[in-house]
Computed example of a mutant assay.
Amino acid sequence: MTLLGWFLQYFIIFVILVAIAVLGVFCGKKLRENKDRKEAADAMIHSDSQDVK
Rank of each mutant, 00 (worst) to 15 (best):
M1H: 05
M1V: 10
M1W: 09
M1A: 13
M1K: 14
M1F: 09
L3I: 08
L3M: 05
L3T: 06
L4C: 07
L4Y: 00
L4N: 00
G5T: 14
G5Y: 08
G5V: 15
G5P: 06
G5F: 07
W6R: 15
W6Y: 09
W6L: 13
W6N: 11
W6M: 15
F7T: 11
F7H: 10
L8Y: 15
L8E: 14
L8I: 12
L8C: 10
Q9T: 11
Y10G: 01
Y10E: 09
Y10I: 05
F11C: 02
F11H: 02
I12S: 06
I12F: 14
I12C: 11
I12W: 07
I13M: 12
F14V: 00
V15Q: 00
V15R: 00
V15D: 05
I16E: 01
I16V: 11
L17N: 13
V18G: 04
A19F: 03
A19G: 06
A19I: 04
A19D: 00
A19T: 00
A19S: 05
A19R: 03
I20T: 07
I20L: 13
I20V: 13
A21Y: 08
A21L: 12
A21W: 04
A21K: 08
A21E: 08
V22R: 10
V22C: 01
L23D: 00
G24I: 04
G24H: 03
G24S: 07
G24N: 06
V25I: 12
V25P: 01
V25S: 04
F26N: 05
F26Y: 03
F26I: 13
F26H: 06
C27V: 01
C27T: 04
G28M: 06
K29V: 10
K29I: 08
K29L: 14
K29W: 13
K30H: 09
K30Q: 11
K30A: 02
K30V: 09
L31Q: 06
L31G: 01
R32N: 08
R32Q: 06
E33M: 06
N34T: 03
N34M: 09
K35F: 12
K35N: 12
K35P: 05
D36H: 00
D36G: 02
D36S: 14
D36V: 15
R37T: 15
R37Y: 13
R37I: 09
R37S: 13
K38D: 11
E39V: 09
E39L: 06
E39N: 10
E39R: 13
A40D: 10
A41F: 15
A41M: 12
A41L: 12
A41T: 14
D42Q: 05
D42E: 07
A43L: 15
A43V: 10
A43Q: 07
M44Y: 04
I45S: 03
I45L: 05
I45K: 08
H46A: 14
H46E: 09
H46S: 12
S47K: 08
S47M: 06
D48L: 13
D48V: 15
D48I: 11
D48Q: 14
D48S: 11
S49P: 00
Q50R: 07
D51V: 15
D51I: 13
D51W: 14
V52L: 15
V52Q: 08
K53R: 13
K53Q: 11
